[in-house]
């Protein structure tokens, strides 16, 4: 299973980005081969409008089953993620990626 994180960097020790639509990076963790791959989303800062649905579309292309983030997506992005059947867990905005992953595994994150 692939899990996506909204992050400010590209390592396990990087901080999570609490934002969804304008997150700086996605980190995609593939459980099967224990691989962590970054996706640069910093171009979203150029979007005056509609960053949420646009980023949700990008995430759809990265094909994760689970998204771990901070504040949670806005309404438009959430409707895209729902159609994409991605489960969303929130409340990890102040953690490192590693901490967020552990909190998720221990069932400490809230389902959106």
């Amino acid at each position: 299973m692939k899990i996506a994180f909204t992050t400010k960097g590209t390592e396990w020790d990087s901080m999570m980005d609490p934002r969804f639509g304008r997150t700086e990076f996605f980190l995609i963790y593939d459980e099967e081969n224990d691989e962590l791959k970054p996706h640069d989303n910093r171009s979203s800062s150029n979007d005056a409008h509609g960053a949420g649905p646009k980023t949700a579309q990008v995430l759809f292309g990265l094909d994760p089953k689970v998204l771990i983030t901070g504040n949670g997506p806005g309404g438009n992005a959430a409707s895209v993620l729902k159609k994409a059947r991605i489960d969303i867990y929130v409340g990890a905005g102040d953690m490192t990626v590693k901490e967020a992953w552990e909190a998720y595994k221990e069932g400490k994150l809230k389902k959106f």
Binding site: A48, K54, V80, K83
Partner: peptide, 20 residues
Amino acid sequence: VCNFHAVIQLGEMIMVFPEL
């Protein structure tokens, strides 16, 4: 062509966001 991401293609679906 949509500068505002009000039209999004998701797989075999087109989603429209009227507010955007």
